[in-house]
């Protein structure tokens, strides 16, 4: 039986917008098995990114519970969540969000600053991560010297450098051309199949979603499951 990595139960998320309460997620139940590659699609405002934020411990549910691995992250304090994120989850954003003042290598090392590794070990691990994404020769380059696809590869290397079990991707190909997007999606597939990473990817792009093992459609705060084609 496949082990469940992430388990959401009865999750509600409401936001206060002026005097009005807006319910983004409604009584959501979801299991994500270890090693899964899930695409989440849906129209804007349907709650996709909110779901991703809850899975990554960036946000807390208004009601219900979120469990990832052995951790009940919906009950954690902000400080505990920070520590948990640093070791258990990697984030990949649409606009890469690399620090422009650091080289690719130093960007990848950033999560390792929170560990007890010394500078040599941090550099070694960052080099391995850059090698996995095929960017070893660009290690000393600054983000402004890289193409969009290369920046996203660096962002992926940064996401995997602390060896988290869960990767959360928010529109990872939204800023890339088709060819480069396909390369990035193949890389994510590789990380899923060869390195055992569980991946949850929010996307508007059906072709991107086709790289996932299954697709969840989010609409008005509820989820519908469809298997990948």
């Amino acid at each position: 039986m496949t082990e469940i990595l992430a388990h959401l139960s009865g999750v509600n998320r409401t936001y206060q917008k002026g005097k009005e309460k807006v319910e983004v997620l409604h009584n959501l139940d979801l299991d994500i098995p270890q090693g899964d590659f899930v695409a989440i699609m849906g129209p804007s405002g349907s709650g996709k990114t909110t779901l991703l934020n809850l899975l990554g411990g960036l946000d807390k549910p208004s009601a219900g519970s979120v469990r990832v691995g052995d951790a009940e992250i919906s009950a954690m304090s902000n400080s505990q969540l920070s520590h948990w994120r640093s070791t258990n989850v990697g984030f990949i954003f649409q606009f890469y969000n690399l620090l422009p003042v650091l080289t690719a290598q130093r960007n990848v090392e950033l999560p390792l600053l929170l560990t007890k590794f010394n500078a040599k070990e941090r550099a070694r691990r960052a080099a391995i991560a850059l090698d996995i994404v095929g960017l070893s020769e660009r290690a000393k380059h600054y983000p402004r010297e890289l193409s969009g696809g290369q920046e996203q590869r660096v962002a992926i290397a940064r996401a995997i450098v602390s060896d988290p079990s869960l990767l959360l991707c928010d529109e990872p190909t939204g800023d890339l051309d088709r060819e480069t997007a396909d390369e990035i999606l193949k890389l994510l597939q590789l990380l899923n199949s060869e390195h055992g990473k569980t991946i949850v990817m929010v996307t508007h792009d059906a072709q991107a979603a086709s790289y996932a093992k299954r697709t969840l459609h989010c609409d008005k705060g509820t989820l519908e499951v469809r298997e990948a084609a």
């Binding site: 990554g56 960036l58 902000n78 400080s79 920070s82 520590h83 948990w84 994120r85 640093s86 070791t87 984030f91 954003f93 969000n97 620090l99 950033l110 999560p111 929170l114 940064r158």
Partner: peptide
Amino acid sequence: VLKTLGFDDRT
């Protein structure tokens, strides 16, 4: 992004 990566408030 730093906070997302796990840098806590005090850091």
